[in-house]
Design a protein around this nucleic acid. Structure first.
Lengths: 203, 203
DNA sequence: GTCTATAAGAGGATAGAC
DNA sequence: GTCTATCCTCTTATAGAC
């Protein structure tokens, strides 16, 4: 029992190490440019061993995306637990977390329109469940924030939802960081501003 | 003379057909998923013939991106020629054109952070010249619009510039279109609104 | 310049010993 | 479950006839 449990722990720990590596590489290079050889090398095991844990490259990436989704759900829950916060506060907080995570190089790139990964994810129950849960949570905040008069009521909630999701792969962060003359915090503030307040001057 | 000119015309026409096909495929699938075999098949010539026109896949894609850049510059010039328009009008017009082009499936995907194509483009004089020319033109409008009080003065012009550029690969358009229940025009209007006015309600 | 045929190599996946 | 060695497919690029 203890022996078995220990083995399982080691097994899970190794899988966790694999997934962490995949998550990082996915954030760095994206799905297509990430090779399985590379993942194996970084984890420090043989490629064939990797395939004992995960049946394919797609499954490998899906596991990483699921972990990312779970992390996002944790942050969403943490916001939901802040009983003093308004809906718009929560929405802004999760958006800011998304930007910070991406800027830190820890956000696996979302699958582009026509990606092998995208189709694999759509067929992946764990990922889709997480995505829907997150969408529901954010959707509630969006509707509430519109009712509060804190979000533009002329926009359909789904447009707001997609706009917030899209911050996870906003290239503006990388462009500004490449310039090198701004702090991460400053960059995040600017993108938060353009996202919620827009480019135009406020009255 | 006439003979030579005619041959040259045929030559250029064929190259133009190639570049057009590449542009479309680049918009559809992106650089990595687009294969040279596919390009050759769609153009209707043998792959080896393609390589007589362009020395590599990267050169092929670069030519397409250069053509896209020239198209953008034409639109920018057209806006500059509208003497009645204000800077913010011009900026909005070129942004709208970008959104419409992407929604129509005619905007080659911009190279992601770590792409083989990106490095090729950075080394490509024609592309970089066009990019700088376009950046200069948009930069002028941005500074002017800020002076006019039409753009948020708290944002550095480069942040505004990158935000406008990023509309060329905004996934929100595709998400909303995938829903299927909105017209292209409506989608563009919403994204224009989130871009310039933000998500938050206006006072 | 166009074709057919093929080289050259990367990368996903597997066989089989231990 | 881990390893080494290998397979196989796909894709870029080229050779050489016409």
């Amino acid at each position: 029992m203890t022996r078995l449990s220990f083995r399982q722990k080691v097994h899970l720990a190794r899988e966790d190490a694999i997934v962490s590596t995949v998550k990082r590489l996915l954030a760095e290079k994206g799905y297509d440019l990430m090779t399985v050889d590379e993942v194996a090398a970084e984890v420090g095991i043989a490629k064939a061993s990797l395939y004992k844990h995960f049946p394919s490259k797609e499954a490998l990436a899906a596991a990483a995306m699921v972990q990312m989704m779970e992390l996002a759900l944790q942050h969403a829950q943490a916001q939901q637990d802040r009983l003093d916060a308004s809906a718009i506060d929560r929405l802004k907080a999760i958006t800011r977390w998304t930007l910070q995570t991406q800027l830190a190089g820890e956000m696996p790139t979302l699958p582009a329109e026509n990606s092998a990964l995208r189709n694999a994810l759509i067929a992946h129950k764990g990922y889709m469940d997480g995505l829907m849960k997150l969408s529901d949570q954010l959707g509630e905040w969006i509707v509430q924030a519109q009712a509060d008069g804190a979000l533009n009521r002329a926009l359909p909630p789904e447009a707001v939802l997609y706009t917030v999701f899209a911050r996870a792969c906003d290239p503006v962060l990388g462009f500004l960081k490449a310039g090198g003359s701004h702090s991460d915090e400053q960059i995040v503030d600017w993108v938060m501003s353009t996202c919620f307040d827009g480019l135009a001057a406020r009255a």
